[in-house]
Design a protein around this nucleic acid. Sequence first.
RNA 1: GCGAUUGUAGCUCAGUUGGUUAGAGCACCGGUUUGUGGUACCGGUGGUCGGGGGUUCGAGUCCCCUCAAUCGCCCCA
Length: 415
Amino acid sequence: MSALKSVKGTYDLLPKDKAVHRHVSETARSVAERFGFNEAVTPIFELSEVFSRTLGETSDVVTKEMFSFETKGGDKITLRPEGTAGICRSFISNGLQQEVPVKHFYYGPMFRYERPQKGRQRQFHQVGIELIGVETPQADVEVIAAGYQFLKELGFADDVTLELNSLGDKESRAAYREKLVAYFSQFEDQLSEDSKNRLKTNPLRILDSKDEGDKVLVKDAPVLGECLNEASQAFYTAVKEGLDLLGVPYVENPRLVRGLDYYCHTAFEFTTTTLGAQGTVLAGGRYDDLIKMMGGPQMPGVGWASGVERLALMMGEGSVDLPRPIVVIPVSGDQQVEAMKLAHQLRCEGYIIDQGYSGNMKKRLNRANKANACAAILMGEDELARGCVTVRDLESGEQSEVSLDDLVTSLAKFK
RNA sequence: GCGAUUGUAGCUCAGUUGGUUAGAGCACCGGUUUGUGGUACCGGUGGUCGGGGGUUCGAGUCCCCUCAAUCGCCCCA
């Protein structure tokens, strides 16, 4: 009880629950591949500057959520809090501008030092895709459509809402920021403490403040859309038209902003009301200046990340079954060796075979039940003498004798 | 980082205004059944009551600290 436990914000994923997580990540991989994104794996830690230089020095992720440490050689290392920075670093390191457009899918653990809650852990998992090297809205449409298809194949088409906004290009955003700061500054003393800080660090975030007082002020705040210049306007329209064309439903949310500095133009979020405060299930946007900020070439990109734990939570415990084995049971100790040999042969033929290690037949059948086995192969002295075994269908209870020569083919229905 | 709630067996929980040896269901192990599972009945293992300190003749129960989880804020997937 007071023995060892996993550290705060981490947890053990046992096979039953992992089956659900795996279904989520495999679905993502499958959809990504159909959209032309193949899996890349980057290290789960990077030099700290990979994140601090790109996420924005004032972002919460950098100021309070990074898991950082120093190596014996004095390198400052950070466990990755998100996936995009690593993919972009890898793009630069490997000279991938030669192979543009680059389309990567990733899956793996991320780390954020924050207060754990349901659907929010210190070590958690994300799947994501990044499309690098395409500056036209076609890329945004494809990326968002892939995200929608992923959620749809998990069965969440009706549980999520796609919220869409445009942050505009650099010029538009700077103009808006100025307008916004001017507006809120007149009411500075009426703003919540949090928003007073946000006014200095990230004024856009005031727009989605949950403080009631702030909400009143936000209602009359200037809207980003008004500040979009012609090019940004056209880009946004093209994205919307593309989504309409593909039948991807969305809701425009002019107050949707991003926490990380590197986003521009398209920002989107798939949200759900079923997870309490952790409503965002898949989110992303366009990051045209990120790679340049990191010291690489000017290279546009767009992508998203999605929280595996949150989606697994939505799926529900036990919503995905573990593979069902066929169990090999020697009727008495005399058939133990034969059973082991047969189990091995069938495994080599591609069957999922379980075998008990002790106990009489009753106990072994009992365990077969608990393992959710679909069939049992009973090996008794009598039938072995005839070169046969008994195959019992554990679903129906029907059983019949099968000659060892025909066994592999007659088991096919249990595969 | 801030605020609130919770913490008794592997799991879900009971445990009166502080009072002897802390209970139940499920799960697990064994038996009824020495070649046939999921049912039923019987029996058994398992707890320093999250941890530490304090008040008291006496603490699972009251107080303080600490750890963890849950909910909300910040922020985010």
